[in-house]
Design a protein around this nucleic acid. Structure first.
Lengths: 197, 197, 197, 197
DNA sequence: AATGAATGAGCCTTCATTCAT
DNA sequence: CATGAATGAAGGCTCATTCAT
């Protein structure tokens, strides 16, 4: 039966993913007040069963955040590979951060999680570490843009930080009573980053 | 009536303010998971006493948000009055939004509150309404800047939204693992907004 | 100043009466869930001040019950003195127990109080003792009626109990969704008690 | 679905009944001051679990009252079916209302509930409606008795009200310091209702 | 005396987590 | 594996009681 074990493992992994998907959605929708039973309902299973895959709500939250950060990192690396100049890469990045892209909606949860004492300080440290790693990629893109003349001069870290803030907030605009972000918004953003020739 | 009614009223008002200050701080620090007893402790009184000033936790949250939005509006109007061109006004605005300025730290609470069903839909509507009013002031500033040549051309609403997002996030940068905002950040921000002559 | 002391004592007694009146009304209206502040409001003073006259809510409740029972006893003794036969005395008794007569509305409070552990067992014993004393008077009336031929034969204690139950419930009829008691009801009651010649 | 759904449903129903039984007892014993934890303890489960069956204390109270009223209605209808004349039916009715019959002990709770603002006015309306329906049955019995000569003449509604009051108070007699009701009491009651030939 | 600010015990209710089936 | 019954810790809120003014 080793075959079954492999298959079991796959099923198990699928389930975990299912739960995390639901959790990401619910966390992003209701914040940290999210209940285990909401997650379970979203994943289509009983709340008790969730504990066969994660040992606590905290673990789920951590997993959701980790996945969100890793995905964001993946998008960042994908942006690096985009054909064209740095502006094109930022354009790609911003587009992937629009509300329709599910990958971004975890960002607010992360923000909240860094507050509360729901998470251990150690966990927060890890999360900040990943954030810094992601910022590093953004930083490289900024510097590339300053080289190829599509990004203004200035402290790259500051620029990366500002740009990072912006794209992660794109999806939240509507929620905050502002107009939702569109392609037009993205073009403006690119121009804002741009140099004055 | 052996009491001094006028004085009592003043004390009462002070207490309310005291509670709101504590609440703002704790909400900003621990998010919606904030306990009434945390607020009470922060204000230096017993949890039961809080209910002599506010009739529920929800009411406190609403008051905190309202006050935060009104203060932000006040800052916006103060910025309008600043001597100089639009860039100077934005500079002023950004400076007042740095972490050291306590008035801004409510913004994240607001963001969280718009999620959850902790608040009635009606309350959320009111909050979004005030946000829109504030955006209107920012909008006027943007248009002024486009007139006096210190702000780039482009859809003013979009620009206002982007800028609003940025300044409200200044204080959160550090928290999110990025470098904290400084005067240098502000200058970059002003240049980003600026036109290409 | 002994005159002042006397006067003070009178005022104090008046105040106590005021509070008990309010308490009786509120207890009869809202049951044991009655709050001290309701009583205070009813008596037109601050809740804190009540404690200058009674040392606890329990003491007030006991006083209200005692007064109610004593008044009922007084009514019973007044009935004994009524001119005419026993039927006339019962008629008088029933009339004084109609809803309009405030003396009866405490009966339900008493009923509730005998339940809960809000009262010490010792207090309950005292209350039951007074109830028994009152029943004794009723018993005498019943026996008088059996003598003068206006009350049916049968165990006088049973009859007294049944009649006591009835008149104390007269005021509650309306509350329980039944038709309110009237003079007609009273006449029926007298006839029910009456013998078959 | 490894569970036996039908069985689960049965168990669930049993549990509900268990809780209601406990609640009826405790409410009848301690009045509206009854704590959820008392009910839970009475039913042999944890307080939290009670909320898996009822969503609030108020709902439990309402259910207890409803059940009590329905049971009383059932007894009334059973009395209607008793062989014999109306007196026999009343006898049956009174017997079923003695303290030993658990079905009646809810009446006092009902009485208390009609006070307080613990219940919505709407709920009280419903309760009064059911009381009126039950009174209707009693009314029919009275009229039957007036026909077959076992009940005195007079306004049937008044008679029904008086009789209803009496039988519902039978169980409370002892509690109020009076002699407890017995078969002898019941016979007296029947005679009181009877006509004078 | 008189007020109402202040406290904290206590109850209702929710929900993470465990566990029997 | 799956379910949901069951528990109990924790937090919101009320209100009796005390006390400074």
């Amino acid at each position: 039966m080793p075959r079954n074990l492999v298959r079991d493992q796959q099923l198990r992994e699928e389930r975990r993913k299912q739960i995390l998907d639901a959790a990401a959605h619910v966390f992003a929708t209701r914040g940290l007040l999210t209940k285990i039973s909401d997650i379970a309902a979203g994943a289509g299973l009983s709340h008790g069963h969730v504990y066969n895959y994660f040992k606590s709500k905290e673990e789920i939250l951590l997993a959701v955040i980790e996945r969100g950060q890793l995905r964001y990192g993946k998008i960042l690396r994908a942006a690096e590979e985009v054909e064209g100049n740095a502006a094109d890469k930022f354009r790609y990045l911003a587009r992937r951060s629009l509300p329709s892209a599910s990958s971004a909606d975890i960002y607010l949860v992360l923000l909240q999680a860094l507050f509360t004492d729901l998470l251990e300080e150690e966990d927060k440290r890890v999360i900040r570490g990943r954030a810094k790693a992601n910022l590093g990629i953004l930083l490289a893109l900024i510097e590339e843009g300053q080289q190829d003349g599509t990004v203004m001069q200035g402290n790259p870290i500051q620029l990366a930080t500002l740009f990072g803030t912006l794209i992660q907030n794109l999806m939240l605009m509507e929620m905050r009573g502002y107009a939702p972000a569109t392609e037009e918004t993205i073009e403006l953003l690119i121009r804002m980053l741009g140099p004055c020739p």
